[in-house]
Simulated scan of single mutants.
Amino acid sequence: MGITFRPVTRDDFGLIGHWLAQAHVARWWAHETGPEAVERDFGPTVRGEEPNEDLIALDDGRPLGLCQRSFWASYPDEVAEFAPFLLVPPDAMTIDYLVGDPADVGRGRGSALVRALADDTLAGHPTCGQLLVPVAAGNVASQRVLEKAGFVFVTVARVEPDNPVDPPEQRVYRRLRT
């Protein structure tokens, strides 16, 4: 069966909050983890008010992690922020991901998740020509995951970091459809 994906529902909010509170996730995601915060951050997508997809990754039916994907063009402010460093074509999408359980970290599950997510995204979105994924320069583990999943380093962009403790450097990786 392998890794599959399903849309996040409200029933997943407790699990998402638990995952976001894990040290290996909290360092890079910098989200509040209480029920109100999870509802605030993930509720709009569940209700169809955000132009992105939030997904639960399942490994042989067991929840493995949280994934997000969207077209860059749906977020013009982010395209403008990266524009001095990188051409973001209108057909480009991005992904984000986390492996929730610390016991699954460091065992190749992240690379398998990202490879499956990239394949699923390209298959499910035929107008997507490429995936462009920025990663905090300090997040070496995520950079390795992307490289193992077939992504190639493109450039460094200096943008506002997701987590205020990080410097502005983001390493941008690409995977083309072909």
Score class of each variant (00 low, 15 high):
P35Y: 09
L64Q: 01
I3E: 04
W19L: 01
D119Q: 15
D59T: 07
P167S: 13
Q22Y: 07
V159Q: 01
T9Y: 02
W19S: 00
S111L: 03
G43L: 03
T94L: 15
N52Y: 11
P76N: 09
E78D: 15
D166Y: 00
P35K: 06
R6V: 00
L86H: 10
I56V: 01
D96S: 11
D119K: 12
L146P: 08
D166H: 00
E49K: 13
A112L: 13
L113N: 10
T155L: 07
A141R: 12
G34P: 08
D60L: 12
L64P: 00
G129I: 09
A21D: 12
L132C: 06
I3W: 08
W29P: 03
L58W: 05
V135M: 05
G48Y: 10
R10D: 05
E36L: 09
A57S: 11
F153V: 04
A23W: 10
F71T: 06
R6S: 02
R10H: 13
F13H: 14
T121I: 10
W29E: 05
K148W: 09
G14Q: 03
E36S: 10
A73R: 15
G100E: 02
L146R: 09
G48L: 12
D59A: 10
A80M: 08
F42V: 01
F13M: 07
V38H: 05
V46K: 10
L146G: 05
S70T: 13
I16R: 04
A118H: 09
R115I: 07
F153A: 11
Y97A: 06
A123G: 09
L176I: 08
A112W: 01
D119V: 13
G108V: 12
P164C: 04
D12Y: 00
D59M: 07
P63C: 07
H24V: 06
P76E: 10
E39K: 05
P164V: 00
